[in-house]
């Protein structure tokens, strides 16, 4: 009996010192975790197939393409900007990567090519935003249209097909293969997530991104070359989109120039918002975006498990995005008042 009360007290003590602050921190700064857990519980109740190993890896796998892009979008939004062109960058880069692969039949060269093209397209955004100081919304709205147009021109309105023989013998394995029962795509995605977390928390560049987004003037007066940081951010987003484009080609084996990557930017922005990154800049986490994209993708499977007609999926998504951001606002206000 006395032993029982002792452990109870110990538990209380522990909660007081470590537990509550920890939970509070999660609730306030990482509340996307709450939405994820809620969704997963609903899904689990609705269907016993939900939350199985295969189901989870599937979820992560299907979110890889937009997920990798959303990581770049996180930096863009933390720095107080926006990038509407990522979908078009993916289209243009994927189309060119497919052509490169047809010509070389080489994984390495295609990947490098995708990275170079993506980075270059991102750099174009960054140049106009950083150096010419045009609002990011306008620049990327323009390049969104321009890059898409170039892509469609390249495919003459139709798809760019990949040499099927070469695709099946060389590239397809990457898009469908597994290691330790986990798809390559998931390994790649998670590796990039970890690298990006390190970049944002452990390097000077990460600090500068936060500083620029939080107070550009102060960042400049601390000696940060703000224009250059913006160019780096957009180039990096282009680079990540390049990687996503390469994986896209590996997975789907052809690129429909009119639709490849279309409205990816919206899902990417939604993931960033659900993940708790402030649209005003200065605050946000890579891991938030990672959970954000998974929340976004698990909606589909939860809804189908609940036998909700697929037509209302986007309605639910919309409500969820709004709800997540409202929740953050309420919690942040409470924090400010304390």
């Amino acid at each position: 009996m006395s032993e029982k009360t002792l452990t109870k007290e110990k538990f209380k003590e522990f909660m007081k010192i470590k537990g509550w602050p920890f939970l509070k921190n999660i609730l306030i700064n990482h509340n996307y975790v709450v939405s994820l857990i809620l969704l997963l519980i609903i899904g689990r109740i609705a269907s016993s197939n939900f939350l199985t190993f295969a189901n989870i890896t599937n979820l992560v796998k299907s979110s890889t393409f937009i997920g990798i892009i959303a990581l770049g979008m996180t930096l863009v939004i933390i720095s107080g900007n926006i990038d509407l062109s990522v979908g078009s960058i993916l289209g243009l880069t994927a189309a060119n990567t497919a052509i490169m692969f047809n010509n070389t039949h080489s994984i390495i060269l295609s990947l490098l090519y995708a990275i170079v093209v993506g980075t270059l397209l991102g750099f174009i955004n960054g140049f106009f935003i950083g150096k010419a100081k045009v609002a990011s919304f306008i620049v990327t709205l323009a390049t969104m249209a321009a890059f898409r147009s170039l892509t469609v021109q390249q495919g003459q309105g139709g798809p760019i097909l990949i040499n099927q023989e070469a695709y099946y013998s060389i590239l397809r394995g990457l898009g469908y293969g597994t290691f330790l029962n986990i798809p390559y795509l998931v390994w790649i995605f998670v590796t990039i997530v970890i690298l990006m977390i390190l970049l944002m928390t452990k390097t000077k560049f990460g600090r500068y991104v936060y500083a620029v987004g939080s107070n550009e003037k102060a960042a400049k007066l601390s000696g940060i070359n703000v224009d250059r940081i913006k160019i780096y951010i957009y180039s990096l987003t282009g680079l990540l989109t390049g990687i996503a484009s390469f994986l896209y080609v590996a997975r789907f084996g052809s690129v429909d120039t009119a639709t490849a990557g279309k409205s990816f930017e919206l899902d990417a922005i939604a993931a960033v918002a659900i993940g708790g990154t402030s649209m005003a800049g200065g605050k946000g986490f890579i891991q938030g975006t990672f959970f954000g994209i998974i929340v976004l993708y698990s909606i589909d499977s939860v809804l189908s498990a609940l036998r909700v007609p697929a037509f209302v999926n986007d309605l639910i998504k919309g409500i969820l995005i709004l709800g997540a951001v409202l929740l953050q606002k309420v919690l942040n206000n409470r924090k400010a008042n304390n």
């Binding site: 000077k204 939080s214 107070n215 003037k217 102060a218 960042a219 402030s278 200065g282």
Partner: peptide, 26 residues
């Protein structure tokens, strides 16, 4: 700088990061 709120503090960062930012640069 004058006008601390506008020109020198980086409000979303903690004290430590606010101090370090110039050091990182130079």
């Amino acid at each position: 700088p004058r006008n601390r709120k506008e020109r020198s503090i980086i409000k979303d960062m903690n004290i430590l990061n606010n101090v370090s930012i110039a050091h990182f640069n130079a």
